[in-house]
């Protein structure tokens, strides 16, 4: 089972399905008037999950990106000037687009973090398989996550080793950094190959595991609620 998260379904397949349905629903919203409902829905879901601290940590980066959209787009896009101060012109179309993009981005990231951040990578991969996606895709996801982790570790160690032996940390030593990166990639590939071998040796993808049980009533209800909410949002969006 996944790590408990408030009232959310425990089955990773249900959570993944909910996240996909809501993310596609949010992405299809086209009216800025629907954005408050979008954000409110994402916020309610996050509160139901009961992990605000984890969520806030994960939202730091997207918040910066969303703020950039809201601040920059009104200055560079659109024709209707709302306010002017010297060369700076605040345009209505840009503001609307910025708010819409930022709202959709924050809502999608919030539901994704809420529903999936507590799932370990291998459970997420298993959920993907359980929902019928090709095994290769699920394995690629799993190994990519592990591989990126390895690359990051290798680069950090190589950077420390360089620094301890007097290597420059700035961008003036680009060839040195390039060589370090190449070496890290080669080492990480070898490590990833070993991990893949270790997984295969312990029966991964051998097709012997018990197939996952059917989704429970609460899991199915969770998916139905997500689909209903996404449909409602889209209806509001069309009416607005």
């Amino acid at each position: 089972m996944a790590e408990p998260a408030g009232l959310l379904p425990g089955d990773p397949r249900a959570r993944l399905a909910m996240a996909l349905i809501l993310a596609f629903g949010f992405a299809a919203v086209g009216q800025v008037g629907t954005v408050p409902a979008l954000l409110a829905l994402a916020l309610i879901l996050a509160l139901v999950a009961g992990q605000p601290a984890r969520l806030l940590r994960g939202l730091r980066g997207p918040l910066v990106l969303a703020a950039a959209f809201v601040l920059i787009l009104p200055l560079v896009s659109g024709a209707t000037v709302l306010w002017q101060a010297g060369p700076l012109r605040l345009r209505a179309e840009g503001l609307e687009a910025g708010l819409l993009i930022a709202g959709r981005l924050l809502a999608i990231v919030t539901v994704t973090l809420t529903l999936l951040a507590t799932l370990p990578a291998h459970r997420l991969a298993a959920a993907l398989r359980g929902l019928g996606s090709p095994a290769l895709l699920a394995d690629l996801l799993l190994l990519t996550l592990r591989y990126l982790d390895e690359v990051r570790g290798e680069i950090l160690r190589a950077r420390l080793a360089r620094r301890l032996r007097g290597g420059g940390a700035g961008w003036r030593d680009l060839p040195g950094h390039g060589a370090m990166l190449a070496l890290a990639l080669i080492r990480s590939q070898r490590r990833a190959e070993n991990i893949w071998a270790a997984m295969r040796l312990r029966g991964h993808a051998a097709g012997l595991a018990v197939p996952p049980p059917p989704l429970g009533a609460s899991d199915r209800a969770g998916i139905a609620v997500a689909a209903g909410l996404a449909g409602l949002l889209l209806l509001m969006d069309r009416v607005a």
Partner: peptide
């Protein structure tokens, strides 16, 4: 490090038996 790829020890030990059914 080549062999441990699950988040917790129990998860990792369960990986093989789970694949055995």
């Amino acid at each position: 490090e080549d062999q441990l790829f699950c988040p917790t020890l129990a998860d990792d030990v369960a990986f093989g038996p789970r694949n055995l059914g």
